[in-house]
């Protein structure tokens, strides 16, 4: 990435944020839905989970699930409609590079997501009086999460013929995330094989890194023991590894499936 790429990416990200504010459907999907989701999940009556109050357990992990809306659905929609309206074609014929266009959308989505995560953080702090312990770990989870789901969104938009169909093509990913993400319970509480699968999906490491970072305790299994700062980073290494693998998978899929122009015929 050159300096110009960075500059273009920032301008395109700012554009994306402006456009989110201009369209009520997008505004609802991207800004409101994730927060409603968080409210819904946190209203399930649960006792303590892994040594944490149920509500806190849910809210510290739910940002991982919010990625589905703030990033994945948002970007599948944006990429698809912009391709069909030939906006991507125009951009490609213009000066910004492919990397800048992608990075711009990723950056915009990251900003939206971080804002939402911040709201959740404030919520947890106000009502449950818990302060995040390891913010850098949480931000790393957010960045890697946005990268994975941004690239997956690029790939999925390639398989989506038009903006209306986007509601359908995102469903499989959405369902898998809803079922497998360890938001309301630890991943290891899932029955055997499901737990293994859940641990390999990108959403699980994000949820667990977020929660561990917020609470300063080991939430990569079902333990919940307090960890030192160094301990948190060490415990997070496998999750970071899984996410990096997913970044590569996402990049390959995006390279293979993403399209700049509408398919003809």
């Amino acid at each position: 990435m050159t300096k110009t790429d960075v500059l273009h990416a920032v301008r395109l990200a700012r554009l994306d944020l402006t456009l989110v504010g201009r369209n009520t459907t997008v505004l609802f999907n991207v800004m409101l839905m994730p927060l409603l989701l968080a409210a819904l999940y946190s209203s399930f009556p649960t006792g303590d989970v892994a040594g944490v109050e149920g509500k806190v357990f849910v809210l510290t992990g739910v940002p991982g699930l919010m990625l589905a809306f703030a990033v994945f659905i948002n970007l599948v929609n944006a990429f698809t409609s912009r391709r069909e309206e030939l906006v991507l074609k125009r951009l490609r014929g213009g000066q910004p590079s492919a990397v800048a266009v992608m990075a711009g959308s990723g950056l915009g989505a990251l900003a939206v997501f971080l804002f939402q995560a911040l709201l959740i953080g404030i919520w947890v702090n106000r009502f449950e009086d818990v302060l995040p312990v390891n913010v850098p770990l949480m931000v790393l989870a957010a960045v890697l999460g946005v990268a994975v789901f941004g690239l997956l969104a690029a790939a999925f938009s390639g398989m989506t013929p038009n903006a209306e169909m986007a509601q359908i093509t995102v469903l499989p990913v959405l369902l898998v995330m809803m079922v497998a993400a360890p938001v309301a319970f630890p991943a290891d509480a899932l029955p055997g094989p499901l737990a293994v699968v859940s641990n390999l999906l990108p959403v699980t490491p994000i949820v667990e890194m977020m929660r561990t970072g917020f609470l300063g305790a080991d939430h990569f299994g079902d333990g919940g023991e307090k960890l030192t700062m160094a301990g948190q980073w060490t415990a997070a290494l496998p999750s970071i590894g899984i996410l990096l693998v997913w970044v590569v998978i996402g990049a390959l899929l995006a390279r293979w499936l993403f399209r700049w122009e509408p398919r003809h015929g």
Binding site: L15, T18, L19, R22, E85, L86, V87, K89, R90
Partner: peptide
Amino acid sequence: GIMLQEGGFLGDL
């Protein structure tokens, strides 16, 4: 400079 045959605008801008 390129002027495509059609389209390529963000309607909400």
